[in-house]
Amino acid sequence: MSDNLLEIKELSTGFFTEDGFLPALDKVSLTLKKGETLGVVGESGSGKSLTSLSVMNLIPTPGKAVGGEILFKGKNLLQLGEEQMRAIRGNEISMIFQEPMTSLNPVYSVGEQIMEVLRLHQQLDKKVARAKTIDMLRLVGIPSPEKRVDDYPHQLSGGMRQRVMIAMALSCQPDLLIADEPTTALDVTTQAQILDLMLDLKERLQTSILLITHDLGVIAEAADHVAVMYAGKVVEYAEVKRFFREPLHPYSQGLMNSIPTLEQTRERLQVIRGVVPTLQQMPKGCRFCTRCDEKQTLCEEEAPPLIGYQGSQVSCWKYTERWEPSPR
């Protein structure tokens, strides 16, 4: 218990719309140990970002967490009031976003925006906060930080802005950094630099990272554990080496097969057939059954639970006793 920094238990989040309640996250459970990096991977709309926004309690209206628990250092974040939650945001849990180009306020200098966090959570006076801001900018590898501190976001490149975001997020030495697709909007060389920077700072500042991405390459490089999400559910949770050696869930296998390799001479990319069902037409049983090649009647009728299997967790009937071995 004590070495679990973040424990999400059966979190259900959904949107209250005119068409009724749409369940976007269905009993999502994740565990992040202290000092670890947990990669959450899935395609667009799988609920990765919504999970991270739920942790921050920043779900856009009309969304709301309707069930489950989010335990952070043993406290259930879903039961905290707005005031208590604000004291945690930016201080104990920080977040960086996908779009460095638009995530910074264009009318304030980057220094001002970093200082704001320091002055809010650490009650530093202006001079000290400024000195610390310059230190943070130096830490994230921004050249001549004494000058850059007064620059406005538009004067910096995308990679530099993401560094500023990282500096801002880490300025109060948070226990948890949520990185929502931090490298997606950057070009490939910058992606690698930013990822290296995050991993380096994670070691130095003892921060745990919840890394949201759709890029399995990023997971392979950065994460200790990986959670695969599909249509608002965690379908597999595994140690990262094991996951890449032997993915268990048919969806994970499909994802792995769709990565093109240099050795292959096939002309067509392998894909998972079909599309993610919309929230309105979610199947009653396993949410992946409409696209699964191995599905059985059971899959269509009942949703599989997340079960332990050889040290991993997987949500598929295949690994239970109720699975009927194929006749062949």
């Binding site: 930016g90 976003f97 995530s103 306020n105 009318v107 966090v117 801002m168």
Partner: peptide, 24 residues
Amino acid sequence: DFIRTAHAKGLSKSVVIFKHALRN
């Protein structure tokens, strides 16, 4: 996006509205 960032920093609603949103 930068309004979401401002909320994620832990700023109060009024600071987000009057400092970050209104000036823009």
